[in-house]
Amino acid sequence: MTGHPVQVWWARLEDARMGLRALLDPVERVRYESTVDPGGRGRFLVGCALSRLVLGELLGLPPADVPLRRVCPRCGGPHGKVHLAPPPDGPSGTLPAYGCSVTFSVTHSGALVGVAVCRGGEVGLDVEESHGDMDIDSAARVALSDVELAALYARPAAERQPAFLRVWTRKEAVLKALGVGLGVPLRELEVSGPEQPPEVLAWPDRLATRPRVSLADTVVDGMHPAAVAVVVAGGAAGKGRGEAGGVRVTVHDGSEPLAEYDH
């Protein structure tokens, strides 16, 4: 079977047990304790703990010793995209167990928390909890290109939320894999339609290069759309386009290692 292998662990907000706080480093603990919203605090705890448990298994390290770092590219503060700190004797993300670079991505929405790990490329993971009271009109005006907006409103009203969320998760996954987040407007990144194989059709002009990116769609609990993107170093995509397919996703139960640790 071909494609970039990506392992994805899904957990839930209800997995935020008090014992998991022992896994947090001092910076994470400050952020956890300063988060006022209980849901946000729980999602942060689950994301940190699950990342450390998964990566600790791969690194052969105690989970609390996994060298996670968050550095904002704008201000240098501890709230940027989380990544593995460079080891003293090797390149960033090099794991002895795999003999090659490993990257990971964390996502959460509502009660869902996910962690993706990939070998041989930068990975981005996004999930969006599907619910009936979402303001699709406002979100679509911010996230979709004119072409995508026209396609969305050509659909019956009942089909718009799932169609929008499928497109949104693909875009978010790509931007997370690139490490730019919402620094690049979603409207300037165009992807294929929900029923089509996932791929990037047009890149924002402000990106200096057109990376090679592969995409895969997935669903959590049979109803919540998610997407995985892998950006491969050492090559650029063709004229304005990304690469369809090319991601092999293996899904794991993230609640299990969290429960085992807390016991």
Rank of each mutant, 00 (worst) to 15 (best):
G3V: 04
E260W: 14
E243Q: 10
L53V: 13
G47A: 08
P96E: 14
K176Y: 06
G222P: 05
Y98T: 11
D262A: 15
R43T: 12
H224F: 05
V247D: 00
P204L: 11
L20C: 07
A22S: 15
A157D: 14
V27M: 15
C75L: 07
S109E: 00
T209C: 09
V106P: 02
R70Y: 05
V6W: 00
R170K: 06
V228L: 08
Q7L: 14
G242Y: 03
G76T: 07
E159H: 15
G254D: 03
G80M: 08
H224Q: 07
L50Y: 10
G56T: 13
V8Q: 04
Y261E: 11
L20T: 04
C48Q: 14
E129H: 11
G114R: 01
L215Y: 02
P78R: 00
G234T: 10
V66C: 14
W168S: 06
E159A: 14
T103D: 02
L13Q: 07
P26R: 13
P67K: 08
V113K: 04
L175G: 00
L178C: 05
L186W: 01
L13Y: 09
A111P: 07
P67S: 10
V147P: 08
L165V: 06
Q7W: 12
P204S: 09
R210F: 07
A163N: 06
E28G: 06
S192E: 14
D15E: 06
L61S: 05
L112E: 02
M134C: 13
D37P: 09
A259Q: 12
R41S: 07
H263L: 14
V6L: 00
S109T: 03
V127P: 01
H108V: 03
P194L: 10
G124V: 02
A143V: 12
D89W: 13
G132Q: 11
S105T: 02
A237Q: 07
A11Q: 04
A150G: 11
V115I: 10
M223G: 15
V230P: 01
P38L: 12
A177N: 04
L201M: 05
V71E: 07
L189M: 01
R160T: 04
L189Y: 05
V27N: 09
G80F: 07
E159N: 15
G124A: 03
V117R: 05
G193D: 12
P5Q: 01
D221G: 10
A208Q: 12
C72Y: 00
A143I: 07
A202R: 15
G90C: 11
S101I: 11
G179A: 11
K171Y: 09
V102H: 02
